[in-house]
Design a protein around this nucleic acid. Structure first.
Length: 298
DNA sequence: CAACCGTGGAC
DNA sequence: TGTCCAAGGTT
């Protein structure tokens, strides 16, 4: 049995029943799930995904609403630029592809917010194509099982793809199963902190385990700070704007953060990123929440 | 290309 | 009221 075969067998018996894995999930549903899952845990994505798909079952449905609605529906999933890009994605899919999520990797990668991982994930999981799909879970599993290292270092996309490619079965359907199986393995067994090696299908062949599970050497990569950063301030500002029904006077934004310089910088950043629009001099709204200056038509 | 971009939960 | 981590992407 190859590693891929072992993983596929394990997956068949142990996979979580996540809604976007149901056979009737559309490519749009897969794309939405992949974007939501970028740096956000499954448990928080699941309810959000259901709400999103109920409201916007197709790219065209989302494209018909303003970005502000997408930002609101995004809620507190984090990195709200993803909501904006998903909206831009929907618009692009309508304009370029007649409302159908493209199946070619090239077209997928050209969509906003779709990078190396997400593009391959959609091509593979929605369309059954044969691509290596490498996320943080796959990198960790391959690193440990094959290379015997405790953790994957900095992502080296090309090398990671090559390493996973070497493990994929020739058949495209089997390759897709192998990729999702490796991901699931990394998510619930070969975890970052407390791997459950006792129940791992790679238990007897894992290079890392067979060499005594050496600890990471050298200095660990310093985690990024959050408290006190512009990111925190942006989050606070956006939280106010999300709940607003009309234009928000600057005065209501001023109360969320003491430091005036940082507050202004954060707000300017949100405007520059297209998440927020300034109305007149002192009012702000989520992008697309612009009240009609005059009724265009009825 | 290292740094930036949110948020919450487990220790 | 700290650290680390979670299906990354963009610049």
């Amino acid at each position: 049995m190859t590693l891929a075969d072992e993983a596929i067998t394990w997956y068949a018996a142990n996979a979580r029943a996540l809604p976007w894995r149901q056979p009737d999930t559309t490519p749009w549903g897969v794309l939405v799930s992949e974007v939501m899952l970028q740096q956000t845990p499954v448990v928080r994505v699941e309810p959000a995904w259901r709400s999103w798909m109920t409201r916007w079952p197709t790219p065209a449905a989302l494209a018909d609403d303003p970005p502000s609605e997408a930002i609101r529906m995004w809620g507190r999933l984090g990195y709200p630029r993803r909501a904006m890009r998903l909206h831009a994605c929907a618009v692009a899919i309508v304009e370029r592809h007649g409302g159908h999520v493209p199946s070619s990797l090239e077209h997928l990668l050209a969509l906003p917010g779709v990078g190396t991982y997400t593009g391959r994930a959609v091509a593979t999981f929605a369309y059954g194509q044969r691509h290596p799909v490498v996320d943080t879970n796959v990198r960790r599993v391959v690193c440990r099982a094959v290379e015997g290292k405790p953790d994957a270092g900095q992502a080296t996309t090309a090398a990671d793809l090559t390493a996973m490619e070497a493990l994929l079965p020739p058949d495209s359907a089997a390759a897709a199963r192998a990729s999702i199986a490796f991901m699931e393995l990394g998510a619930i067994v070969c975890t970052a902190r407390a791997p459950r090696c006792a129940v791992c299908p790679f238990h007897d062949v894992c290079a890392w385990r067979l060499t005594g599970q050496p600890l990471p050497d050298g200095p660990s990569r310093k985690p990024q700070r959050y408290a006190g950063t512009d990111r925190q301030v942006r989050g606070l500002l956006l939280e106010v704007l999300r709940h607003a029904t009309g234009p928000v006077p600057r005065q209501r934004l001023d109360v969320v953060w003491q430091d005036e310089v940082q507050r202004a910088r954060a707000l300017a950043g949100l405007v520059e990123d297209g998440l927020v629009e300034r109305l007149g001099v002192e009012d702000f709204v989520l992008a697309g929440d612009t009240p009609k200056g005059g009724v265009q038509d009825l």
